[in-house]
């Protein structure tokens, strides 16, 4: 069986904030359709790493290739890349002055130059997929956190992205809303989307992850399939961390 093409290839990547090294010698390959879940203590560099994947942060050395596009500061095709790579943020970051529908249509219309009627059709289609078709004409502030996050997921999907990045998508949500967002993410995983998810929702990780990554102090400490990751992690630090978050 041939491996699917690599979508994300990271080798030897370093990232500094001033003199502080936020990422050290990162190596990671994500294949098409693969689901990678990244966890690790606060400040370990999880956000920084996935923010490099769509050019919200720039690495200082090493190599990063996403879907065949070499990513570096000043790359001319970075905007094309960003259209391929969707990102869902902890704080949703919806556009508060636009309705839900407009939030979903503005990218396709202004960036992809898709005609309005077609953009609206796509938008309504994805709103269905995240189970809130009836909220199309509301403003973000009128929605619950869980609904807002699902709109944010739909907004990324409307760009017909090939990779989806999630940075702690449920950690700003009230507990009763976490599942509605995770359910949408599980359904998305079933469509074969390539996904990199920073989360501490280990139930979700068990369900969808092909690969688990544990980071600490800017390094990848452990990288293994979930069966092994949850039962016999090779590093002591990872075991301690899992004990801690699974104890809840």
């Amino acid at each position: 069986m041939t491996r699917p093409a690599p979508m994300i290839e990271v080798s030897n990547l370093d990232k500094f904030y001033g003199t502080f090294q936020a990422l050290k010698n990162i190596d990671l390959t994500v294949h098409q359709g693969e689901k990678v879940v990244i966890c690790g203590p606060s400040g370990s560099g999880k956000s920084t790493l996935i923010r490099c994947f769509n050019g919200l942060e720039w690495h200082n050395s090493g190599r990063l290739v996403i879907d065949g596009i070499e990513v570096y500061e000043g790359a001319k095709d970075i905007r094309e890349l960003r259209q391929e790579v969707g990102m869902v943020f902890q704080q949703f970051n919806l556009f508060p002055h636009l309705t839900v529908l407009e939030n979903l249509m503005i990218g396709p219309m202004k960036v992809r130059k898709i005609p309005k009627a077609q953009a609206e059709e796509t938008a309504r289609n994805y709103l269905d997929r995240v189970h809130i078709p009836e909220q199309a004409d509301k403003y973000p502030a009128q929605l619950s956190g869980g609904q807002q996050q699902r709109v944010a997921i739909a907004r990324s999907l409307c760009m017909e992205t090939r990779i989806m990045l999630f940075d702690e998508p449920t950690s700003a949500l009230d507990p009763e809303m976490i599942n509605e967002v995770l359910d949408v993410m599980v359904e998305l995983a079933e469509t074969g989307m390539t996904m990199v998810v920073v989360t501490h929702e280990m139930g979700f990780a068990r369900k969808v992850a092909d690969t688990m990554v544990f980071m600490e102090a800017g390094q990848i400490v452990e990288i293994s399939p979930p069966e092994q990751f949850f039962t016999q992690p090779s590093s002591e630090r990872c075991r301690l961390f899992l004990d801690q978050i699974l104890a809840h």
Binding site: R82, P96, V111, R112, S156
Partner: peptide
């Protein structure tokens, strides 16, 4: 800053971000 990041992440140029996202707000 999240508004800039969201606009960037759907591929908007700085000009489009100002015009459609930042200035109206």
């Amino acid at each position: 800053a999240g508004q800039w990041e969201a606009a960037k992440s759907i591929g908007m140029s700085p000009y489009q971000t100002y015009l459609y996202i930042i200035l109206p707000q």
